[in-house]
């Protein structure tokens, strides 16, 4: 319970950064913090006490294993995160080239 709570606090810290910061880079960093905590939450669900990683080894009898399904889902999600981060970076660099600033309030003002 306390572990879930801490993980949720991490998510809220990221949300705080997205909502209050005006610098585009800070927003990208906060988004990645939110992504980490979401992945962590999924894997925390699958942990089983005194169980081993879900990989068989030669000459070892089968023991109880942790839940492999959240791990498989998170494995694909981490890759997509990196693609999205790179795309956001490309957008931010583009915006800087046009508006000469990373401040989102000024970007909005200039475009309107």
């Amino acid at each position: 319970m306390i572990i879930y709570l801490l993980c949720f606090i991490l998510f809220l810290v990221g949300l705080y950064g997205v909502l209050t910061k005006r610098n585009l880079i800070k927003i990208i960093l906060s988004l990645s913090i939110m992504e980490y905590s979401a992945n962590l939450f999924l894997v925390l669900f699958g942990y089983k006490r005194d169980a081993l990683f879900p990989i068989l080894e030669k000459g070892k009898e089968i023991q109880s294993m942790v839940d492999p399904l959240p791990q498989a889902l998170v494995l694909t999600s981490i890759v997509i995160e990196l693609g999205i981060t790179a795309m956001l970076v490309a957008l931010a660099v583009r915006l800087y080239q046009k508006y000469k600033t990373f401040d989102i309030t000024k970007i909005r003002r200039l475009s309107g």
């Binding site: 990196l82 693609g83 790179a86 970076v89 490309a90 660099v93």
Partner: peptide
Amino acid sequence: GLFVMVWTLAVFH
């Protein structure tokens, strides 16, 4: 894919 991404960013920059 990842290398091409970074390559595009670097060339642009």
